[in-house]
Amino acid sequence: MRTALRDNALGLVFGLLFLIVLVAQAFAGHADFNQQQVAAGMEPIGLGRYLTSASFAADVAENWQSEYLQFFLYIFLTVWLVQKGSPESKKPGEQGLESDREQKVGSFATDDSPSWARAGGLRRTLLSNSLGLVMGLLFVASWLTQSIAGVAAYNEEQLRDLQEPVTWARYLTEPDFWNRTLQNWQSELLAVASMVILSIYLRQRGSPESKPVGSPHDATGVEG
């Protein structure tokens, strides 16, 4: 049991932190929503009703979509683009899908390789791109959720202001939708660019996200 916990600590801790922060967001969002309700001369709503509201769903989904977009882009772009000196990058000259031998697929699969790595055709293609594809699908699903919950939340505000509600298609052209979307995208792209570039010159001893402390600044694709 203790070994299992230790061996999976990273995933477990992040999963737990996610749940704690999501609950905290729910309480903060509920308080914020009720402040606006009272300011508009209405009654506060219960936590349960808030958790099933479009407002909460839109706030959650708009952040999820940008996170999955970040990983989707990072996974695919690092196949083809390199950053000299970054431990996040492959070495210059290694761009591309690499050989079957390097990727241990087909006849180069080992005994403990996933069975789909040994198989050919669609199964191998799916496994070979599964990480990026799932991130991409989660991005699309989250963005779609943001748009659907977002139009309902937006229309609730429209009615509060005695304005006409809009359709989903019209909402996709509204500044509200793109402001929510782009403010998340820019922060994710900044975070990735910061990681790629700062990790050239800075170190974190013991972290696989960093080069070993003594590695030269121009060492690429070396993880500590």
């Binding site: 309700q37 479009a54 309902a152 939340a153 229309n155 609730e156 009615l159 509060r160 509600p165």
Partner: peptide
């Protein structure tokens, strides 16, 4: 009639 959250038109 259209309902969005706590509001309706």
């Amino acid at each position: 009639a259209r309902v969005y959250g706590q509001r309706a038109l």
